[in-house]
Amino acid sequence: MIKFINTPIFGILITIIAFEIGLFINKKTKVSIFNPLLISILIIITFLLKFNIDLDIYNKGANFISFFLGPATVILAVPLYKQLDLLKSNLISIVVGICVGCITAVVSVLYLIKLFNLTNSVGLSLVPKSITTPIGIEVSNNIGGIPSITVVAIIITGILGAVMGPFICKLFRIKDKIAVGIAIGTSSHALGTTKAIELGETQGAMSSLSIGIAGLITVFLAPLLIKIL
Protein backbone atom coordinates (compact mmCIF):
# COMPACT_ATOMS: atom_id res chain seq x y z
CA MET A 1 0.00 0.00 0.00
CA ILE A 2 2.79 2.44 0.89
CA LYS A 3 4.49 1.75 -2.45
CA PHE A 4 1.22 2.46 -4.28
CA ILE A 5 0.69 5.76 -2.42
CA ASN A 6 4.15 6.92 -3.53
CA THR A 7 3.34 6.41 -7.22
CA PRO A 8 1.74 8.99 -9.58
CA ILE A 9 -1.20 6.62 -10.09
CA PHE A 10 -2.35 7.34 -6.52
CA GLY A 11 -2.80 11.08 -7.11
CA ILE A 12 -4.53 10.53 -10.46
CA LEU A 13 -6.88 7.87 -9.06
CA ILE A 14 -7.87 9.89 -6.00
CA THR A 15 -8.55 12.95 -8.17
CA ILE A 16 -10.76 11.02 -10.62
CA ILE A 17 -12.73 9.30 -7.84
CA ALA A 18 -13.27 12.58 -5.96
CA PHE A 19 -14.45 14.36 -9.13
CA GLU A 20 -16.82 11.51 -10.03
CA ILE A 21 -18.33 11.76 -6.56
CA GLY A 22 -18.71 15.51 -7.11
CA LEU A 23 -20.46 14.92 -10.44
CA PHE A 24 -22.80 12.40 -8.86
CA ILE A 25 -23.78 14.78 -6.04
CA ASN A 26 -24.23 17.66 -8.48
CA LYS A 27 -26.49 15.63 -10.79
CA LYS A 28 -28.55 14.28 -7.91
CA THR A 29 -29.07 17.60 -6.14
CA LYS A 30 -29.06 19.88 -9.24
CA VAL A 31 -27.92 22.69 -6.95
CA SER A 32 -25.29 25.05 -8.42
CA ILE A 33 -23.40 25.46 -5.15
CA PHE A 34 -22.58 21.74 -5.22
CA ASN A 35 -20.04 22.29 -7.98
CA PRO A 36 -18.15 19.05 -8.83
CA LEU A 37 -14.79 20.80 -8.60
CA LEU A 38 -15.55 22.30 -5.20
CA ILE A 39 -16.79 18.97 -3.85
CA SER A 40 -13.75 17.08 -5.21
CA ILE A 41 -11.37 19.61 -3.64
CA LEU A 42 -13.03 19.21 -0.23
CA ILE A 43 -12.95 15.42 -0.53
CA ILE A 44 -9.25 15.35 -1.46
CA ILE A 45 -8.26 17.78 1.32
CA THR A 46 -10.24 15.77 3.89
CA PHE A 47 -8.73 12.48 2.67
CA LEU A 48 -5.14 13.78 2.79
CA LEU A 49 -5.60 15.26 6.26
CA LYS A 50 -7.41 12.19 7.62
CA PHE A 51 -4.69 9.77 6.54
CA ASN A 52 -1.82 12.24 7.05
CA ILE A 53 -0.65 12.02 3.43
CA ASP A 54 1.87 14.65 2.35
CA LEU A 55 0.76 17.02 -0.40
CA ASP A 56 3.96 16.36 -2.39
CA ILE A 57 3.02 12.67 -2.58
CA TYR A 58 -0.43 13.52 -3.95
CA ASN A 59 1.07 16.00 -6.44
CA LYS A 60 3.16 13.28 -8.07
CA GLY A 61 -0.01 12.27 -9.87
CA ALA A 62 -2.01 15.49 -9.66
CA ASN A 63 0.66 17.36 -11.64
CA PHE A 64 -0.08 15.13 -14.62
CA ILE A 65 -3.69 16.33 -14.55
CA SER A 66 -2.58 19.96 -14.19
CA PHE A 67 -0.48 19.55 -17.33
CA PHE A 68 -3.66 19.12 -19.40
CA LEU A 69 -5.23 22.41 -18.24
CA GLY A 70 -3.82 24.23 -21.26
CA PRO A 71 -5.04 21.75 -23.92
CA ALA A 72 -8.42 21.50 -22.19
CA THR A 73 -8.84 25.28 -22.42
CA VAL A 74 -8.06 25.21 -26.15
CA ILE A 75 -10.92 22.73 -26.72
CA LEU A 76 -13.35 25.47 -25.67
CA ALA A 77 -12.69 27.07 -29.08
CA VAL A 78 -15.00 24.48 -30.71
CA PRO A 79 -18.33 26.18 -29.78
CA LEU A 80 -16.77 29.52 -30.77
CA TYR A 81 -16.02 28.22 -34.26
CA LYS A 82 -19.68 27.30 -34.66
CA GLN A 83 -20.66 30.91 -33.87
CA LEU A 84 -18.00 32.57 -36.04
CA ASP A 85 -20.48 34.66 -38.07
CA LEU A 86 -22.04 36.03 -34.89
CA LEU A 87 -18.57 36.96 -33.64
CA LYS A 88 -17.72 38.85 -36.83
CA SER A 89 -20.95 40.87 -36.79
CA ASN A 90 -20.49 41.92 -33.13
CA LEU A 91 -16.70 42.10 -32.95
CA ILE A 92 -16.29 45.66 -31.65
CA SER A 93 -18.95 45.31 -28.94
CA ILE A 94 -17.49 41.99 -27.81
CA VAL A 95 -13.89 43.26 -27.57
CA VAL A 96 -14.94 46.45 -25.76
CA GLY A 97 -17.04 44.43 -23.30
CA ILE A 98 -14.16 42.07 -22.52
CA CYS A 99 -11.72 45.00 -22.09
CA VAL A 100 -14.06 46.74 -19.64
CA GLY A 101 -14.50 43.50 -17.72
CA CYS A 102 -10.73 42.98 -17.44
CA ILE A 103 -10.12 46.55 -16.27
CA THR A 104 -12.89 46.24 -13.67
CA ALA A 105 -11.53 42.91 -12.40
CA VAL A 106 -7.98 44.22 -11.91
CA VAL A 107 -8.86 47.68 -10.56
CA SER A 108 -11.40 46.31 -8.04
CA VAL A 109 -8.77 43.94 -6.61
CA LEU A 110 -6.15 46.70 -6.37
CA TYR A 111 -8.52 48.92 -4.39
CA LEU A 112 -9.52 46.01 -2.14
CA ILE A 113 -5.81 45.44 -1.44
CA LYS A 114 -5.56 49.02 -0.17
CA LEU A 115 -8.86 48.81 1.71
CA PHE A 116 -7.88 45.67 3.64
CA ASN A 117 -4.19 46.61 3.84
CA LEU A 118 -2.99 43.30 2.40
CA THR A 119 0.70 42.58 1.96
CA ASN A 120 2.02 43.06 -1.56
CA SER A 121 2.63 39.38 -2.34
CA VAL A 122 -0.77 38.21 -1.07
CA GLY A 123 -2.67 41.08 -2.64
CA LEU A 124 -0.96 40.80 -6.01
CA SER A 125 -1.74 37.07 -6.03
CA LEU A 126 -5.44 37.97 -6.28
CA VAL A 127 -5.08 40.22 -9.35
CA PRO A 128 -5.33 37.40 -11.96
CA LYS A 129 -8.33 35.78 -10.22
CA SER A 130 -10.64 36.18 -13.22
CA ILE A 131 -8.48 34.54 -15.91
CA THR A 132 -7.84 30.88 -16.66
CA THR A 133 -5.34 29.03 -14.44
CA PRO A 134 -2.38 28.52 -16.86
CA ILE A 135 -2.29 32.23 -17.75
CA GLY A 136 -3.10 33.34 -14.19
CA ILE A 137 -0.10 31.47 -12.77
CA GLU A 138 2.26 33.19 -15.21
CA VAL A 139 0.75 36.62 -14.50
CA SER A 140 1.10 36.00 -10.76
CA ASN A 141 4.78 35.11 -11.18
CA ASN A 142 5.45 38.20 -13.27
CA ILE A 143 3.83 40.70 -10.89
CA GLY A 144 5.29 39.25 -7.69
CA GLY A 145 2.35 37.17 -6.49
CA ILE A 146 2.22 33.70 -4.97
CA PRO A 147 0.99 31.19 -7.60
CA SER A 148 -0.57 28.79 -5.08
CA ILE A 149 -2.76 31.61 -3.70
CA THR A 150 -3.60 32.67 -7.25
CA VAL A 151 -4.83 29.17 -8.10
CA VAL A 152 -7.13 29.14 -5.06
CA ALA A 153 -8.46 32.60 -5.96
CA ILE A 154 -9.09 31.50 -9.56
CA ILE A 155 -10.99 28.39 -8.46
CA ILE A 156 -13.14 30.33 -5.97
CA THR A 157 -13.85 33.04 -8.56
CA GLY A 158 -14.81 30.43 -11.15
CA ILE A 159 -17.18 28.60 -8.83
CA LEU A 160 -18.82 31.83 -7.66
CA GLY A 161 -19.18 32.95 -11.27
CA ALA A 162 -20.79 29.66 -12.28
CA VAL A 163 -23.19 29.84 -9.34
CA MET A 164 -23.96 33.57 -9.22
CA GLY A 165 -23.46 34.60 -12.87
CA PRO A 166 -26.84 33.48 -14.27
CA PHE A 167 -28.64 34.84 -11.17
CA ILE A 168 -27.00 38.28 -11.53
CA CYS A 169 -27.86 38.40 -15.24
CA LYS A 170 -31.50 37.67 -14.38
CA LEU A 171 -31.46 40.21 -11.56
CA PHE A 172 -30.33 43.02 -13.88
CA ARG A 173 -32.49 41.71 -16.74
CA ILE A 174 -29.58 40.99 -19.07
CA LYS A 175 -31.23 38.84 -21.72
CA ASP A 176 -28.89 39.25 -24.69
CA LYS A 177 -27.11 35.91 -25.20
CA ILE A 178 -23.84 37.51 -26.30
CA ALA A 179 -23.77 39.85 -23.29
CA VAL A 180 -24.47 36.99 -20.89
CA GLY A 181 -21.67 34.86 -22.37
CA ILE A 182 -19.14 37.69 -22.36
CA ALA A 183 -19.99 38.63 -18.76
CA ILE A 184 -19.66 35.08 -17.42
CA GLY A 185 -16.50 34.21 -19.41
CA THR A 186 -14.67 37.43 -18.61
CA SER A 187 -15.40 37.26 -14.89
CA SER A 188 -15.13 33.54 -14.21
CA HIS A 189 -13.06 31.92 -17.00
CA ALA A 190 -13.40 28.17 -17.76
CA LEU A 191 -15.50 27.21 -14.72
CA GLY A 192 -18.01 29.92 -15.55
CA THR A 193 -17.94 28.83 -19.18
CA THR A 194 -19.14 25.35 -18.26
CA LYS A 195 -22.27 27.02 -16.88
CA ALA A 196 -22.56 29.32 -19.90
CA ILE A 197 -22.54 26.26 -22.19
CA GLU A 198 -25.49 24.89 -20.20
CA LEU A 199 -27.39 28.14 -20.84
CA GLY A 200 -26.98 27.87 -24.61
CA GLU A 201 -24.59 27.46 -27.53
CA THR A 202 -24.23 31.22 -28.11
CA GLN A 203 -23.54 31.95 -24.44
CA GLY A 204 -20.99 29.14 -24.34
CA ALA A 205 -19.23 30.33 -27.49
CA MET A 206 -18.96 33.94 -26.30
CA SER A 207 -17.79 32.81 -22.87
CA SER A 208 -15.13 30.61 -24.49
CA LEU A 209 -13.92 33.55 -26.56
CA SER A 210 -13.71 35.72 -23.45
CA ILE A 211 -11.33 33.31 -21.70
CA GLY A 212 -8.54 33.73 -24.24
CA ILE A 213 -8.97 37.45 -24.89
CA ALA A 214 -9.36 38.29 -21.19
CA GLY A 215 -6.19 36.33 -20.44
CA LEU A 216 -4.17 38.19 -23.08
CA ILE A 217 -5.52 41.59 -22.04
CA THR A 218 -4.77 40.92 -18.37
CA VAL A 219 -1.19 39.87 -19.19
CA PHE A 220 -0.48 43.34 -20.58
CA LEU A 221 -2.93 45.34 -18.46
CA ALA A 222 -2.21 44.05 -14.94
CA PRO A 223 1.44 45.28 -14.65
CA LEU A 224 0.46 48.66 -16.10
CA LEU A 225 -2.48 49.24 -13.75
CA ILE A 226 -0.40 48.09 -10.76
CA LYS A 227 2.19 50.78 -11.53
CA ILE A 228 -0.48 53.47 -12.04
CA LEU A 229 -2.57 52.63 -8.95
Rank of each mutant, 00 (worst) to 15 (best):
A162I: 04
F64K: 14
A205Q: 08
I16R: 06
N59H: 05
D176C: 12
N63H: 14
F220S: 09
K28C: 02
A72Y: 08
I154V: 15
P36D: 13
T150N: 04
I14A: 14
L91F: 12
L23N: 11
T193V: 11
S207M: 07
T132S: 15
M1W: 04
T150K: 03
L221A: 06
L126Q: 01
G192L: 04
P147N: 07
G145W: 01
G22C: 10
L216S: 11
V106D: 01
M206W: 08
I92E: 00
N6P: 00
F47K: 09
S207P: 11
F34C: 10
G212Q: 11
G204R: 10
L199I: 13
P134M: 14
K82P: 06
L76V: 15
G158E: 11
N90D: 06
N63L: 05
I213E: 06
K177M: 07
K175G: 02
L209A: 14
I9Y: 12
A196N: 10
L209N: 10
I149V: 10
A153L: 11
I39S: 13
I92P: 02
V180L: 07
L209Q: 15
T104K: 05
A105C: 08
A183C: 12
F116D: 06
I135T: 08
Y81A: 13
S148L: 10
N26W: 00
S89Y: 02
I197A: 02
N141I: 11
Q203E: 14
K30C: 03
P8S: 12
G144L: 01
K27P: 00
L23H: 12
P128R: 05
I156H: 02
I94Q: 01
I211S: 04
T194N: 15
P71I: 03
I45D: 01
N26G: 11
S207K: 11
I9F: 14
I137W: 02
L80F: 13
I39D: 04
G123M: 07
I155A: 11
G165S: 07
P223R: 03
I228L: 14
E198S: 13
K82S: 09
Q203C: 15
T73Y: 13
E201P: 09
N35S: 09
G61E: 03
D54G: 02
G181V: 06
I228G: 05
V152K: 05
L23A: 04
I168V: 12
C99R: 02
P147E: 08
S40F: 04
P36M: 06
L171K: 10
I149S: 03
Q203K: 07
A153I: 09
I228E: 09
V180D: 01
V107I: 11
K175H: 14
I168R: 03
N90Q: 07
F47S: 09
V31P: 00
V139C: 06
T132D: 14
N117C: 00
V107W: 00
Y58N: 13
R173P: 00
I174A: 12
G144Y: 05
T186S: 15
V78P: 10
L69E: 13
T132Q: 09
V152F: 04
P79E: 15
I16C: 05
F167D: 08
T186H: 07
K177N: 13
F4N: 11
I44H: 02
I228D: 06
I217D: 01
T46V: 01
T29K: 14
I12L: 13
L87T: 03
N117E: 03
